Structures are given as structure tokens and as C-alpha cells.
Computed example of a mutant assay.
Amino acid sequence: MTVHDIRSFNRFYTNLIGALDYGRHLYAPYTLTESRVLYELAHSPRTEAADLRAELSLDAGYLSRILARFEKDGLIERAPSERDTRRRQVTLTARGRETAALLDERSSQAVASLLATVPAGERQRLAEALRTVRELLSGGRPPRAEDVVLRERGPGDLGWMVQRNAALYAAEYGWNTDYEGLVARIVADFAEDHDPYLERVWIAELDGRPVGCVMCVRDAAPATARLRLLLVEPDARGLGIGDKLVRACVDFARSVGYRDLVLWTNDVLTAARRIYQRHGFVLVAEKPHRSFGADLVGQDWRLALHGTPGDG
């Protein structure tokens, strides 16, 4: 391997990406950097200007100009941070969320068109090769919290959520297929009928593979959202992924105007319960029950958000 080899690959890949965007104006009317800032605002729970600057290694003045343009275009709102009034919190507006989703969709379609040229039997080899490149060029360091990306669901993700929930809870708690059936019904209900403005799924991704998920859906109670199916893969724990997923759910529920966010869990899920407590959820009721082949204590938790759905 020589410097020439890496530079040659860089030329190949940049030409490839340029070809994908040729004539399609993939990121128009925004630059690639501006689109990346929008992506972070849509997918990261850390949305203070200082966090964005550190995450993307951007010059403060350059980021300020990007945010000023977004504000002028009606894509974001800026306000003092709740944690520190000297810092600025950046929040996407409804128009901003739509724009970020459009750019994300265009990018996904472009990559899908690229993958369509790769035989199905070779795609796993391609994925492994990409992971190998990242691992080698990162110096073999262990994954860090900032390597985790939150994104919205894509094709196959809902099926992955059912499979991984069933497999992990069977392995870690001995739950039977009744739990898999429950998860399958929850996911099927979302797939068949959900409001994209008021309901959402997030996938946590590390090195190009899904390692966690959570879902926010409307509850039967008025002005109330429900957090469901929080999961983090065992080999990805310790990176704050559960916190990121719950924060994304809380921020989303608050941004679209729900008054309350509720969830149901079981007392044996101690790690998850600690996450909920850190984010301000309060235990409001618990009841013993026999489900999934085990004797459990079900718990209802609630977080007050304020507002009314659709007002935000």
C-alpha cells in the first residue's frame, strides 16, 4: 500500500459520487456541507451550535453563516440552551424537517442506484470491506459515542427490530415467542398505518450496521405519545446509545407538541429503567403479571412535555 494507492482510490470514489449527483442536483439548493449540518440536526440529539461545530469540525464563523442561512430560509429556530444560556440551541422547524427528509431521501436513492450495480451475493463482501477500511484508518481504536449515528428507518429495518427484540430478550431473559408476537404486532401496526408527522422510528447505526432502535407513536390518551421497543445490541452498549435514542424520542415528541410521553416496561429491565429516570420519566404504576413465559412486574412511566399535538 502506497500514498499513490490511497490517492487513486480517493479520485475513483469522488468521481463515483460526482457521477451519482450529475444532473440531479442531489443537495440543491444547499451545499454538501450545509446538507450534512441539516442531517446532524435531524438525527442527532445534540443540537447545540457548539456540539455541531465539534462534531463536524467546522470553523465557528462558517457554521454561523450556515445557520444564519437556514434561519433565513425558515429551516431552523435558535434559542438559548436550557442547560447553559451562553450556548445556543438549534431546532429544526417543520419546514426544516421536511427539507432534511427530502435530502436524506435523495441521498438514499443515489446510494441505492449505486448498489443496484453490485450483485446481491457481493453486497455483504462490500459492506465488510467498507468496515475494514474504517477500522484500519481509525487506528484500530474502539468505537466511540460520536461514531454512533441516529437515522430514520429504511427498508428492512422494521423486520430487523422484530428479529433482534425476539432474539435478545430470549437470550437475556428467557422470554418466549409471545414477546416476538407482541413486537411483530406493534411493528406491523406502525408499518400499515402511521402519521409521519406525529410518529417516528429511529435506528442507531455504528460502522454501517444497526445497533439500536426506538419508536415514538401516538397513545390512546389525548395529546400523549408512547415510547416503544427501545433496544441496544450487547456489543454496542456503553456508548450512550440508549440515552441518544430516548433523547431523540423525547425531543421529537416535544417538538411536535405532545403534552406527555409514556412507556410500559418491566422491572427486570434495570438498565433501561435507569435511562428513563435520567431523562425525567416518573414511575406512576406497577402491577405483577405473567407474560412471555415469565413472572414479571409491569411498570408505567410518564414524562410531562407540555403542549398539544400539531401546535409545534
Rank of each mutant, 00 (worst) to 15 (best):
L92H: 03
M215K: 06
E152V: 08
D73A: 00
E286R: 14
E34G: 12
W264C: 07
S107I: 08
L56F: 03
D189V: 09
D84V: 14
M1W: 09
E82L: 13
S107R: 15
L126G: 02
G238K: 07
S291P: 01
G74C: 02
L58R: 04
R7F: 10
L303V: 07
G140Y: 04
R65L: 11
E71A: 15
R254H: 14
D73Q: 01
G212C: 07
D147H: 09
L261Y: 00
R144T: 05
L52F: 03
G181Q: 15
V201G: 01
D195C: 03
A220M: 09
Y27N: 11
L92R: 00
A225V: 08
H279E: 11
Y39M: 09
L198H: 09
G310Q: 02
E82N: 10
L229G: 04
A167P: 02
A188M: 10
V201L: 10
R36I: 11
L269F: 13
A60D: 11
R259C: 09
Y169F: 15
R24S: 12
D235Y: 13
Q299I: 09
R87G: 06
V3S: 12
L126Y: 04
T2P: 01
G280V: 12
L114Y: 10
S44A: 12
P210D: 00
L130E: 15
V246F: 07
Y179D: 01
L102R: 15
D243L: 10
D157F: 06
A79R: 15
L58P: 05
I66A: 05
C249N: 05
G154I: 07
K244Q: 11
A110W: 00
A19L: 14
A94C: 03
A79K: 12
A112T: 08
A60H: 12
I76H: 02
V250D: 00
I203T: 06
T117E: 15
E48T: 13
N15Y: 08
A112D: 12
Y62E: 13
L150M: 13
L56V: 03
E48P: 00
A129G: 12
D21W: 13
G154A: 10
K287V: 09
M1S: 14
G212S: 05
Y258H: 11
E40D: 11
A50D: 13
D251N: 12
R200L: 03
G312R: 02
L136V: 13
D157M: 06
A116Q: 07
D300R: 15
L283H: 05
A220F: 07
